Measured scan of single mutants.
Amino acid sequence: MIVFVRFNSSHGFPVEVDSDTSIFQLKEVVAKRQGVPADQLRVIFAGKELRNDWTVQNCDLDQQSIVHIVQRPWRKGQEMNATGGDDPRNAAGGCEREPQSLTRVDLSSSVLPGDSVGLAVILHTDSRKDSPPAGSPAGRSIYNSFYVYCKGPCQRVQPGKLRVQCSTCRQATLTLTQGPSCWDDVLIPNRMSGECQSPHCPGTSAEFFFKCGAHPTSDKETSVALHLIATNSRNITCITCTDVRSPVLVFQCNSRHVICLDCFHLYCVTRLNDRQFVHDPQLGYSLPCVAGCPNSLIKELHHFRILGEEQYNRYQQYGAEECVLQMGGVLCPRPGCGAGLLPEPDQRKVTCEGGNGLGCGFAFCRECKEAYHEGECSAVFEASGTTTQAYRVDERAAEQARWEAASKETIKKTTKPCPRCHVPVEKNGGCMHMKCPQPQCRLEWCWNCGCEWNRVCMGDHWFDV
């Protein structure tokens, strides 16, 4: 396979590697080409510095992935760790964990309700045991953590790749202090920090972006993250068709209702045909949960890209028209025109101005929308079919299609509260000796007794199943 190397943020060049090629071997190839010592090179990928003893497969490097290699003399205490030698983080029983690669970060837990604080980093599902597709590297999971809308060759929703760059020099040479644990960490600028490894760059702020994971991409090709779309790892039924499908869209209502993408497309087109989208002054033209839940309008309007190009163009047109109407304007009634106009409040005669090729020149009556006339309008008909009709959803289907309910059931079956801080902690095999993952707590306690870890627990039921 081919990976592209950008040395000291210059133009990239291809390097041929195998899945079992080590990072140090990659350094040696680059060092020979650039005429520099291999031990002064640092390989940066997806916000993480890659260790010498890791392989291309370990690092989730795919065909035509772009890695950054910078030349920086080692500072005291760094060289041993980078070589894969006596790194205290690798000691058996050590409590410190390697910062998780962005290629394996899962933010789907952050669609849980606000009262489930902490689960994004504490609760991990076991539903990723799908067998890898044919042709994928051994052991590589097909679980997708992110979804994007690819405006490039795909023109559809695709699995996405999370990447990070330095907000100062805009190069992907920043190593994160810690990985993101929720969508806010990724979507809110300057929320996460790190250290830029580019020479002479003092940058410390992280800037995240997404790429389409279905095809090789260049540095400049980015895609918009659709953070309401998630892999259906909890096997929730769709609120409309009641099938279990994946991926799904999880509405931001209190129940976190789930809808499959085909039904979401149908829901949007139906509402669009009836012009029953909601115009929100802050958000724009949007839709609420299909069950009509309060405070559930979709905030990231790129989710409506699921409509496809033709329907999305209609959505944008109707949204612009609705904006004009909300501002007190009118639409030209001549067939084939429909231009938005903003006449004076007491102006009865409205002319669709033909300047700049935008208007048709038609003069019409503001009251009856017919060709302009003197005197009273002959008839004014009330528009028919403008009443909002509820999208029919079966109550039982709505009850079963809740992301929140599956989460709470998982928590109930696989977790116990920490005796000190009461945060839910998952036990997935292993011994009875637990350690609270909350940095402010870190209590060592017994899963069996529910009390602080002691010699009695150690001698009596340390390794009970």
Rank of each mutant, 00 (worst) to 15 (best):
4 F>G: 07
5 V>N: 03
6 R>Y: 04
6 R>M: 06
7 F>S: 02
11 H>S: 05
11 H>A: 05
11 H>C: 05
14 P>W: 03
15 V>M: 06
17 V>D: 00
17 V>R: 00
23 I>P: 00
24 F>T: 07
27 K>H: 02
28 E>H: 06
28 E>Y: 03
33 R>H: 05
35 G>F: 04
37 P>T: 08
37 P>N: 10
40 Q>M: 09
41 L>I: 03
43 V>F: 04
43 V>K: 00
44 I>Y: 05
44 I>R: 01
46 A>D: 10
47 G>H: 03
48 K>T: 05
52 N>C: 03
57 Q>T: 10
57 Q>S: 12
61 L>Q: 01
64 Q>H: 15
64 Q>F: 14
65 S>P: 10
66 I>A: 05
66 I>E: 05
67 V>K: 00
72 R>K: 14
73 P>G: 07
74 W>S: 13
74 W>N: 13
75 R>M: 13
79 E>C: 09
84 G>I: 12
84 G>F: 13
88 P>R: 09
93 G>H: 13
98 E>R: 09
99 P>A: 13
101 S>L: 10
108 S>A: 10
108 S>F: 06
110 S>Q: 12
110 S>V: 07
117 V>A: 13
118 G>K: 11
119 L>H: 15
119 L>F: 07
121 V>I: 08
122 I>M: 15
122 I>F: 13
125 T>N: 13
129 K>T: 09
132 P>M: 11
132 P>V: 12
134 A>C: 09
137 P>Q: 12
137 P>D: 14
138 A>Y: 11
141 S>V: 09
145 S>P: 05
147 Y>M: 03
150 C>N: 02
151 K>G: 15
152 G>M: 10
154 C>V: 00
156 R>W: 07
156 R>E: 10
157 V>G: 02
160 G>I: 00
164 V>W: 14
165 Q>K: 14
168 T>I: 09
171 Q>N: 14
173 T>N: 11
176 L>N: 03
178 Q>G: 10
182 C>R: 06
184 D>W: 04
185 D>G: 00
186 V>Q: 01
188 I>W: 07
189 P>S: 07
192 M>F: 05
195 E>L: 09
203 G>R: 02
203 G>N: 04
204 T>H: 06
205 S>F: 13
206 A>W: 00
207 E>M: 06
209 F>N: 11
211 K>D: 14
212 C>A: 01
217 T>M: 10
217 T>N: 11
218 S>I: 09
218 S>W: 07
220 K>N: 11
223 S>Y: 07
223 S>C: 13
224 V>G: 08
225 A>H: 03
226 L>Y: 02
226 L>Q: 01
228 L>K: 03
229 I>M: 10
229 I>V: 15
234 R>A: 09
236 I>E: 02
240 T>F: 08
243 D>E: 15
244 V>N: 05
246 S>W: 02
249 L>C: 03
249 L>I: 12
250 V>C: 04
251 F>L: 02
253 C>M: 01
254 N>L: 10
255 S>A: 12
257 H>E: 00
258 V>N: 02
258 V>L: 03
260 C>R: 00
262 D>C: 03
262 D>I: 03
262 D>S: 04
265 H>A: 08
265 H>Q: 07
265 H>T: 07
265 H>S: 07
266 L>C: 10
269 V>A: 04
271 R>A: 14
273 N>A: 04
274 D>F: 04
276 Q>P: 00
280 D>I: 13
283 L>N: 13
284 G>E: 03
285 Y>T: 04
285 Y>P: 04
285 Y>L: 04
289 C>P: 01
289 C>T: 02
290 V>F: 05
291 A>Q: 06
291 A>Y: 10
295 N>T: 06
295 N>R: 07
298 I>M: 06
299 K>D: 08
299 K>Q: 09
304 F>Y: 07
304 F>T: 00
305 R>V: 07
305 R>C: 07
310 E>N: 06
312 Y>S: 04
312 Y>C: 04
313 N>V: 08
314 R>C: 02
315 Y>W: 09
316 Q>T: 13
317 Q>H: 10
317 Q>W: 06
320 A>I: 14
326 Q>W: 05
332 C>S: 03
334 R>F: 06
337 C>R: 03
339 A>F: 14
340 G>P: 15
340 G>I: 04
341 L>K: 06
341 L>W: 07
341 L>G: 06
343 P>Y: 06
346 D>A: 12
348 R>I: 06
349 K>D: 05
351 T>L: 08
351 T>A: 07
352 C>W: 02
353 E>C: 06
354 G>W: 07
357 G>S: 10
357 G>H: 13
359 G>M: 09
362 F>I: 07
364 F>C: 03
365 C>I: 02
366 R>N: 08
367 E>D: 12
369 K>M: 10
372 Y>T: 06
374 E>T: 06
375 G>L: 06
375 G>F: 06
377 C>E: 03
378 S>N: 15
386 T>I: 14
389 Q>K: 14
390 A>M: 11
394 D>L: 05
394 D>K: 06
395 E>M: 11
396 R>G: 10
403 W>R: 03
405 A>K: 14
408 K>E: 13
411 I>C: 08
414 T>N: 08
418 C>E: 01
418 C>I: 00
426 E>R: 07
428 N>C: 12
430 G>W: 06
433 H>R: 04
434 M>I: 12
435 K>N: 15
436 C>H: 01
439 P>S: 11
443 L>A: 09
449 C>S: 02
449 C>E: 03
449 C>H: 03
451 C>T: 15
452 E>P: 15
454 N>C: 05
457 C>H: 03
458 M>V: 04
462 W>M: 08
462 W>A: 15
462 W>L: 15
462 W>P: 15
